[in-house]
Computed example of a mutant assay.
Amino acid sequence: MGTDRLDEVLDAAYDCLTRYGVRRTTMDDIATTMGVSRSAVYQYVRNKDDAFRKLARRLHTQALERAERAAATPDAPQAERIRGVLAAKLDLVLRLAGDSPHSAELLDHKARLFGDICHDFTGSLRRLLIGLFGEAGTPATVEPAEAADMCIALVIGLESVSEGEHLFGPATDALLTGLLVTPPLDAPLNVPLS
């Protein structure tokens, strides 16, 4: 029951975030959204900062789990596995940005509350990509870590343009053609953004 109730608190915190943003949300807002007293919310989080940190951690963990599943897909071509890792990152950003302009606060690497969570998430994705490029092989002039960094930079760029989800396929195809010893298949692989 504790986990279910914590999920309810985090769902309510997300609802408040989309309406008010982190700074303007209060513990009373979270409690009202849940339909409980403020003291009931305090049984699961210490304060609103704790609620938002737990919410950010949950969202980043879900995206990382998706990336790990994509990276570990047996019998999938390396390019498809790499695209799956990158899609998990882009999907997280697009989902949050689509829900509310306030939701993007959970992705701010410089934010006091979430910076470490965002940094750890990107570091985990980087390690997955390094492993995939290590398995697949890269041209002699590009180390797997450099290939991973280029892919992450590509996704960060796609996050900042209005049509990023539409550019994802062609952009990753073009990049992977130059980064993989065995280039991607001629036909683009569509890794759906959820």
Rank of each mutant, 00 (worst) to 15 (best):
A76F: 00
C118F: 13
L193F: 07
R81H: 08
A148M: 00
D75W: 11
P170T: 14
F168H: 01
F168G: 00
F121Q: 10
Q43K: 14
L125C: 03
H60C: 01
A174D: 05
P74C: 07
L106Q: 09
S160E: 12
P192V: 05
F133P: 02
A97C: 11
A31P: 03
M27F: 05
I30K: 01
T141C: 10
G21M: 09
T32R: 15
L92P: 03
L167Y: 10
A63H: 06
R5F: 10
A153E: 08
T138A: 04
R69Y: 06
S100Q: 06
Y14T: 04
R5C: 06
D11C: 02
L55Y: 06
R127P: 03
R81D: 08
L55V: 08
L167R: 12
D50I: 03
S194R: 14
S194N: 12
D49C: 00
V41T: 10
T18R: 13
T172F: 08
D149P: 02
V93Y: 15
P183C: 11
D120T: 15
L175G: 03
R46E: 15
A147R: 00
G131I: 07
E163I: 15
E165N: 08
A76Q: 01
D108L: 03
N190Y: 14
M27E: 07
M1Q: 13
V191L: 01
V85Y: 10
P183W: 11
